[in-house]
Write a protein that binds this DNA or RNA. Sequence first.
RNA 1: GGAGAGGUGGCCGAGUUGGUUUAAGGCGUACGCCUGCUAAGCGUAUGUAGGGGUAACUCUACCGAGGGUUCGAAUCCCUCCUUCUCCGCCA
Length: 418
Amino acid sequence: MLDRKLLRKDPQIVAQGAIAKNEKIDINLWVEADATRRELMLEIENLRKVRNQLSKAVSQKKRNGENADEEMALSRETGAKLSSLETQVSGIDTSLADMEKAFPNLPDSDVPRGGEENNVVLSSWGDIPKFDFEPKPHWELMENVFQPEAAGRIAGSNFILFRGWAAKLQRTLISWMLDYHTKAGMEEIWAPFVAKPESMTATAQLPKMEDDMYKIGRDNLFLIPTGEVPITNLYRDQLLDESDLPVRLCGYTPCFRREAGSYGKDNRGLNRVHQFEKVEMVRLEHPDKSDAAHEELLKHASGMLELLGIPYRVLLLASGDLSFAAAKCYDIEIWSAGQQKWLEVSSISNFRDFQARRGNMKYRPTGGGKTKLIHTLNGSGLALPRLIISLVENGQQADGSIKLPPAIAKLMGTEVIR
RNA sequence: GGAGAGGUGGCCGAGUUGGUUUAAGGCGUACGCCUGCUAAGCGUAUGUAGGGGUAACUCUACCGAGGGUUCGAAUCCCUCCUUCUCCGCCA
């Protein structure tokens, strides 16, 4: 959520930010409701004051054995007026809260405006591999170990079933990536793969993304669409000391996405599926240091690709391509030799205090003083299916075998998969 | 799933025959004092959010969440969430 003070002071900035993100909001509705609410609250607080005084008087008279009927009658009258006003206010409160939850975070000023076409390629690394034969897509190279028909029989279309070396490769990569993060000082987290609505609201998957998530209605739970949800919510409603910052976490989770309406668009093979595995990095940071942390996460994530020898490029997303909660986001894309295109394998975002305000995540400054909202950031490190696509397609050889990068070959026990 | 016991300010913890507790006390923290060394002691301050005032200040709400009873609710009633103990079931 955004700061109410900002909404009152500069509603137009909020409205422009929403437009830049292609979100439709009616800021004027909010401004009016907020003004009405404050008027009513003034009245309510005065009435409460009167009632408090009357109650005190009743209390004293009764203790002295005096009659307090008059005060009690007055208080009853005050209470009646109060309850009608309070009903009005609680209605306004609900609609204010609903509106605020639907206001997107504002893009940073250095984020290019416009849609996807205005994303900026900031850098790239590695050489795009060349072949003296026609490179195949992964679904051909993995015919025996990636079986979508089997997954379809079990769970429906667009799920993954790996067997043999593909299953092992995925497990190995998860473990290798987690080790890479923990060696850099992150704490590994194993968290629930379901979350309740409050958690989904804190990280801002709700209300906007509800239709894209799997819901377990009977228990009022959602399957997590990303590890960001449980790992960030580890600190929901928590007060940290300034000296606890930064908090650096990582963890493996599956990610469940309904991908409603996305059929037919780049979804062949492993490109887009309903359940994929991901290692996620989460960071809670001091507000003054979140920009530096954002750069650091980007460098850290792309470092993995350099160890694996996978060519990648870094995009700075334009405002219209930013997620609801992000203020700024870098995407890392890796090269898919079999499909001759870039695949998004990591999204690294700074949410500033947007999630912290929703989830009540604060710190107490060293030396005392008012508690302040922390900044949250996260980034994939990395998403498995597309990483596997790239390893397999970029490492393919003329005979259909796949050469593994040394770091992974050691763990897999072979340099070449045949 | 069944039975029982809890959920109070950063932490611990009083307060349940409803009314000077509109939250005692302790710890922690901050500042100061004292003391010949980062020990002990003393003093003062210290929850969150919102409103009003130039300001000293003041008002209101919040005792897991939401409803209810009442002139008045941390305290009584209901629903839900959550933690613990025992039983049942189960990998």
